[in-house]
Amino acid sequence: MNPSASRIKVQPATESEGRKDYIRIQDFGFWYGAKKALDAISLDVPEQRVVAFIGPSGCGKSTLLRNLNRMNDLVDGIRHEGDIQIAGRSIYDPGIEVISLRRRVGMVFQKSNPFPKSIYDNVVYALRIMGVTDRAILDEACETSLRKAALWDEVKDRLNDSALGLSGGQMQRLCIARAIANRPEILLMDEPCSALDPIATGKIEELIHELKAQFTIVIVTHSMQQAARVSDRTAFFYLGKLIEYDTTEKIFMNPTQAQTEAYISGRFG
């Protein structure tokens, strides 16, 4: 077992070299009521990189992800210790508005959840909530976001059709477009491909690869193959602890911890 993993520091490796740490998680503990879900997690995410969270079901991946934009605040009886900083500032700083934090830190969920509205209305939804009414601005944001989400060519002729008529893979890219329309700095993705077929999955992975030029991305995935393909760094969690965090190459080719090796080679348990 790993010593409480109080600080696992990744050596700057080729991929991440010279990049600022955009998210800093420091000695972070988290409770749902009496249940401790995360224990002393310390981990840094470099900007414009993709970090994958892997580990068996229930190890706390989604809990940590949801803390990055304080989504867990909505749950009763939660408590945390330690700190999370984004761009050098604590997200628990009293001066930080949770609404604006969630704009800066966008989220894409496992089950795509488009609103029962048109494709267009879905993409510009958040902008409208923020009070933007200028049609030209909304049109522009819609097209840019759909292009970045690699969906524009497939839907440009039917922007007013219901989003519910899209395929699963298209819906998921629509949700990414919706998140991008907010101009976030960080994109969080919680098992974004688990309901998709291999081709749709491939398209989302290609998209992630392109998006990291502009966003810092954290992805939770139950697929180790996916983590290996898309991420620059990988964090392996077990029972609420961070067991190992390193470059993806190191984690999958030659991890330091025996538990990591057992997990990635399918010998776990």
Binding site: Q225, A228, R229, T248, E249, F252, M253
Partner: peptide
Amino acid sequence: IMRYLTLFG
């Protein structure tokens, strides 16, 4: 070769 075999299935 090792990298490709391990990471890209």
